[in-house]
Amino acid sequence: MTAQQSLQLISESFNKSRKDILRGSAKYFMFWGALLTVTSLAIYLLWHFTGKPQWNFLWFTMPAVGYPLAALLRKNSAAVPQNEVSKMLGAVWTVFGAFAITLSAIAVFLVPMRVTLIITIIMGLAECMSGVLLKNWPIIIGGFLLGVGGAVFAMLVTSEAQLLIFTLGGILLLVTGSIMKLQYK
């Protein structure tokens, strides 16, 4: 091998595995995006047509269903390694999940608070950070708009319609996953 060929081989192998890893992360964005879209729409419709806000308890089924399904998805996938970016993406969304579940539980059982407002902001932050890690401007801007726009919307709209912010958030995650799949094809 010449020096040129060696460097080309290094660069190709490195890029190929990097693309593989980030394409592997894309399916989790799509999975959680689909689950969030379906859950938020279902709760919105149930609340809207019955007039009962108690349907919000269904939010707790999302992690109960989502985490085992995500584990199953990981188990059935071909073993794709982790790199620094995929690990950081996982960490950002794990922290978001921990905050979202804990704050929701506190709001329901201990101290009432404007959960939609808080979760929209931290979800926007997590999405923004994902965009920074992936060096992708559309994801950064999408996360920023979700966080800031969602916060304003949550303050202005107090009816069940504010749940539609999460539907938008779910769609944004689906779009993020699709962008990643295309970007790292």
């Binding site: 081989l9 290094i10 192998s13 490195f14 190929k16 595995s17 390694p81 790199n83 690990k87």
Partner: peptide, 16 residues
């Protein structure tokens, strides 16, 4: 060299 290039960018990788 290909094996080392892959392993240099990841935590670990399996044989498959």
């Amino acid at each position: 060299l290909a094996v080392m290039s892959i392993l240099a960018g990841v935590d670990e990788a399996d044989f498959t």
